[in-house]
Computed example of a mutant assay.
Amino acid sequence: MKTTRIIAAALLIVGSGLMLDGAAAQQPGIHRTDLIKNDLGVPGRETLQVRVDFEPGAVSIKHSHPGEEVAYVLEGSLEYQLEGRAPVTLKAGEALFIPAGVAHVAKNVGNGKASELATYIVDKGTPLVVPVE
């Protein structure tokens, strides 16, 4: 009986961790579509490309990544707030480089849907989105 409770508690803890990672990736008003994931020629590094769609007014959680991100706005207007910098607003056709480990928030500041193409060059095998308080 005690072993069953320990196993159940362990599964609950592991499951909660998985849900947290999923919650960081899929937030209300934000939809991520994974496009490609591939190893790089540099050992331990990989690249991922993701389309991120923001409903009007949607705001990401404050987060960072275990590598660099290039955000290219496909449609609409997105405001990016990188830690230690003034906010910058980009419209369709503009891009932003986000250094590894820099905490940031993205927000749809337009009237309609906004979308970005996010390209990540990150450490392989690590969570892509790291929530920051």
Rank of each mutant, 00 (worst) to 15 (best):
78 L>K: 01
78 L>A: 06
79 E>C: 01
79 E>H: 04
79 E>W: 00
79 E>K: 14
79 E>I: 04
79 E>D: 02
80 Y>A: 14
81 Q>I: 13
81 Q>F: 00
81 Q>N: 12
82 L>D: 06
83 E>S: 15
83 E>V: 03
84 G>K: 01
84 G>M: 06
84 G>L: 06
85 R>H: 11
85 R>A: 15
86 A>N: 05
86 A>E: 15
86 A>L: 10
87 P>S: 03
87 P>T: 07
88 V>L: 14
89 T>W: 11
89 T>K: 14
90 L>A: 01
90 L>C: 10
91 K>G: 15
91 K>I: 10
92 A>I: 02
92 A>M: 08
93 G>I: 11
94 E>L: 08
94 E>P: 01
94 E>I: 04
95 A>Y: 08
96 L>G: 13
97 F>M: 09
98 I>H: 10
98 I>E: 15
98 I>T: 14
98 I>W: 03
98 I>S: 06
99 P>I: 11
99 P>S: 13
101 G>T: 12
101 G>S: 13
101 G>C: 04
101 G>I: 07
102 V>W: 05
102 V>L: 09
103 A>R: 08
103 A>F: 07
103 A>E: 11
103 A>I: 12
103 A>H: 10
103 A>P: 11
104 H>Q: 10
104 H>C: 05
106 A>H: 06
106 A>S: 15
106 A>Q: 06
107 K>N: 03
107 K>Q: 12
107 K>D: 02
108 N>G: 02
108 N>M: 09
108 N>C: 01
108 N>Y: 03
108 N>P: 05
109 V>C: 05
109 V>A: 11
109 V>S: 09
109 V>R: 10
110 G>M: 10
111 N>S: 12
111 N>R: 14
112 G>V: 00
112 G>Q: 03
112 G>S: 08
113 K>G: 06
113 K>F: 02
113 K>S: 07
113 K>Y: 00
114 A>M: 07
114 A>D: 04
114 A>N: 00
114 A>F: 02
114 A>R: 03
115 S>P: 03
115 S>F: 00
115 S>M: 01
115 S>W: 05
115 S>G: 15
116 E>R: 02
116 E>F: 00
116 E>K: 06
116 E>Q: 11
117 L>S: 09
117 L>H: 08
117 L>Q: 13
117 L>V: 04
117 L>M: 15
117 L>R: 12
117 L>E: 07
118 A>G: 10
118 A>L: 03
118 A>I: 05
119 T>I: 14
119 T>H: 12
119 T>N: 13
120 Y>I: 00
120 Y>T: 01
121 I>P: 00
121 I>H: 07
121 I>E: 09
